[in-house]
């Protein structure tokens, strides 16, 4: 088994040693994750209520979405989670180049996800599949329902995409620091970043079936 990078310089006030710092960072991140669960939870309650009341609208909306593309997006995020695990591993082992490389891979996969998302948004907006309900212009109940579904779609995927953007920025900053710097970044910080990134993945794992897989059978 490779040696853990446990240099005393990695420890920051007010912690006494690496194990102490790791336990605190991990707890802090899980507290943060708990609040993210409730933050996104609000959207899922809205979604659930809407789907229970208008199952046909959600089914019709789901059929308007691009399942193959979304499947590729899911795979992209899952693989990026795996590369993030390798980045954390590199940091724990004190492998600077490995850390920079795996972070860069994670960041590139995240950018690919965002590119697909942007293409998808562009496609829907061009097709007139927008969330804004203009009651005077809506020619039918179906049209109003579609607008409502796309309200759900844009808000849920939008908040997720914002989290991806935030992650990409921090990943890029850490990757550059690892590639340039002489000193290794604290691996506990990379572990925290990893926890955040996996959380973004977990949220998508629920968004994907909720929106894209509704109403295909």
């Amino acid at each position: 088994m490779a040696e853990l990078h446990a240099d005393a310089r990695l420890v920051r006030e007010p912690f006494t040693d690496v194990a102490h710092q790791r336990a605190a960072v991990s707890l802090g991140m899980w507290v943060f994750i708990a609040q993210e669960v409730l933050f996104f939870g609000v959207l899922f309650v809205w979604y659930g209520l809407f789907r229970a009341q208008h199952p046909d609208v959600v089914a019709a909306g789901g059929r308007a979405l691009d399942v193959p593309l979304a499947t590729v997006m899911t795979v992209t995020l899952l693989v990026s989670s795996f590369t993030m695990v390798l980045a954390v591993r590199s940091a724990m082992l004190g492998a600077r180049r490995g850390l920079a490389g795996w972070l860069a891979a994670t960041g590139l996969l995240a950018v690919a996800f965002l590119a697909m998302k942007a293409w998808e948004y562009h496609h829907h907006i061009a097709a007139g599949e927008v969330p804004v309900v203009d009651l005077h212009a809506a020619s039918s109940v179906v049209e109003a329902g579609r607008a409502q579904f796309f309200g759900l779609y844009f808000v849920m995927t939008g908040f997720h995409a914002l989290h991806v953007v935030g992650g990409v920025l921090v990943i890029a900053w850490r990757a550059l620091a690892a590639a340039r710097g002489r000193e290794l970044p604290r691996w506990t910080a990379i572990m925290g970043l990893g926890l955040y990134w996996h959380l973004v993945d977990v949220v998508w794992l629920f968004v994907f079936p909720a929106l894209y897989l509704a109403g295909h059978a």
Binding site: A34, Q35, E36, L38, F39, F40, G41, V42, L43, W46, P131, V132, V133, D134, L135, A144, G145, A147, Q148, G151, F154, V155, F159
Partner: peptide, 29 residues
């Protein structure tokens, strides 16, 4: 555990106010 629910809810009010997505207003469903 409570504050994130307020945060998202206020953002949804903001979205409904600014963009007109029907979330809480019955006139928009």
């Amino acid at each position: 555990l409570a504050t994130p629910v307020l945060g998202m809810t206020l953002l949804l009010v903001l979205i409904e106010h600014a963009v007109g997505i029907g979330i809480f207003d019955p006139a928009y469903g």
